[in-house]
Every structure is written in structure tokens, then in C-alpha cells.
Amino acid sequence: MFTGIVTDLGEILSSDDIPAGKRTRIRTAYDTDTFDIGASISCGGVCHTVTAKRNGPDGNWFEIESAAETLALTNVKDWKAGQRINLERSLTMGAELGGHLVLGHVDGLARVTERQDHPDSVLFRFEAPPEAAPFIAKKGSVALDGTSLTVNDVDGLLFSVFLIPHTLEVTTWSARQVGDMINLEVDMMARYAGRLAEFSRSG
């Protein structure tokens, strides 16, 4: 489980096809001695398991493997060497919850439809996949490429968020443009509320 507060801006060193899907090596500022093989790290908003790691004089790195379902549902399939990626280590008991509870289970891809740069913020507008749109509410929370953000407004499949300069500086968002496909995870509370409503109607 995560909070959607990005704590490192990693760099993809390699991304190779393997029989099970894709293996990716990511350069990180994290001290890899402080987490074990099998640890969970949010990589671009997708929960992944660490399969290899090393601290070295030329930089620290860890490896993850992405299964076919992950490649089908997320933008992991498009990752390339040299690309920057939002990273967050898993939440520990007693840690400050600065964003909202994020599982790292992506619901689909949201497309950037508009970017407006202002002196003190940037507005992004997205088109959500139809199956995820009902769970996105004005002033609610979403995780976009692993970043916890507050929804500014909603109109059908479209929704928008404002990003402050600090978020642009410490995440991949400064490079995002119209047409980019973004990993979207809706608020899990909205997901459970929707399931309860569905069950009540069917019952």
C-alpha cells in the first residue's frame, strides 16, 4: 500500500521482453540495502515486486518484472531506457499519510486532453476510461502515474487536476503533454462504495 507521495524520480536503465512479460531495471536514489528482494515499490503508479537490486559506485538500481496483464492495463509496455519514472516505497506503520491510500492496482489508462500552464500551477485535463469514470468525483482523490491528486472538476469522462510547482519539480509531470497515456487508479473507497451499491441493487 502507498500514499501517492512520490519520493524518488527514477530512471529506466533497461526494459527487456521476457517470457513472462517485461523485465525493467531502474536507477534509484534509494539505498537498496534498506529493502529486501520481494519488497513492493510503486513504479509509475504500478505496484511491482523487487526481483534484484544493487548499490554501486555508478548508481543504485533495482529490477522488477511486469506480467502480461500489467502490460495490457498500464503504460508499462511503453517504458524505454532513459525515461524518468515516479517511485514510492510501500507505506510503513506509523508513517505520515500525506496523500491518500493507494494500492498500486491500476484501473486503466487516462489520456491527457489538455494542458494549461499558469504562473503558479498547471492544469491537466484527462479522458478517463468509461469503466473508471463513475468512480471519479469532484474534490475526490485519484492516483495518476503514482501521484496522489485532487480532482478539480468532472464532466462525463473528462476530469481535471491542478499541479503546483513543487509537484512538477519532483515528479515526471513537467514532461507530460497532450496525448500522453497515464496510469489511473481511482480512490479505493469509491471503488468499494460502487461495489456495495451494485450488490444492493442486484439483491
Rank of each mutant, 00 (worst) to 15 (best):
T51P: 00
G10E: 02
G203E: 12
M93K: 11
G82R: 12
I26R: 08
G59H: 08
G4V: 08
G59R: 03
L13C: 00
T49E: 10
R25A: 03
D180W: 07
P129V: 06
A133D: 03
G94Y: 12
M93T: 07
R115S: 05
S15A: 15
A137K: 13
T49S: 14
F126I: 09
T92W: 01
A133C: 11
R191P: 01
R27F: 12
L97M: 15
A68T: 14
A29I: 11
A128V: 10
V106E: 03
L87E: 05
A52I: 09
C43L: 12
N75Q: 07
S121N: 14
R191Y: 01
A133N: 04
T113M: 06
V76A: 08
A29R: 15
E88Y: 14
L73R: 10
D8N: 06
G98N: 08
W61D: 13
L168C: 03
K77F: 02
D31M: 11
A193F: 05
E114Y: 06
R201P: 04
D153N: 15
N75D: 08
A20N: 12
A52V: 12
T28L: 09
L9E: 10
T150Y: 01
A190W: 04
I18Y: 09
T32N: 05
K139T: 14
Y192W: 11
G98K: 08
T51H: 02
S42N: 14
V76M: 07
T51F: 02
G104S: 07
F2E: 08
L184W: 03
L71K: 10
S174N: 12
P57W: 12
K77A: 13
D78Y: 13
G140H: 00
S202E: 06
G82H: 09
R23E: 06
G108P: 04
D153S: 15
V122K: 12
A95K: 03
S15L: 04
R54F: 03
V178A: 14
A72V: 08
G82S: 06
T3I: 13
F199K: 15
L123S: 09
P165A: 15
T150G: 06
Q116N: 09
E69M: 11
D145M: 09
T24S: 14
H48M: 15
K138H: 07
V122T: 15
I18R: 09
E65G: 04
D78A: 15
T172R: 02
Y30C: 06
A175M: 11
S200E: 13
S148H: 02
W173M: 12
F159N: 07
M189H: 00
T92N: 13
Y192H: 13
V102N: 07
D117E: 13
D58F: 07
M189S: 01
T74V: 02
L158F: 08
T3S: 15
M188Q: 09
Y30E: 08
L158S: 11
G56I: 03
N75V: 02
I85P: 01
W79C: 01
G104V: 01
V102R: 05
P119G: 05
V142E: 06
V50E: 04
D16K: 13
R111I: 09
D117L: 10
A197H: 04
E65D: 08
I64N: 07
E63I: 11
N86C: 12
H48D: 09
E88W: 10
A190H: 00
G179I: 11
A197M: 14
A190R: 01
S174K: 14
R111V: 14
G203V: 13
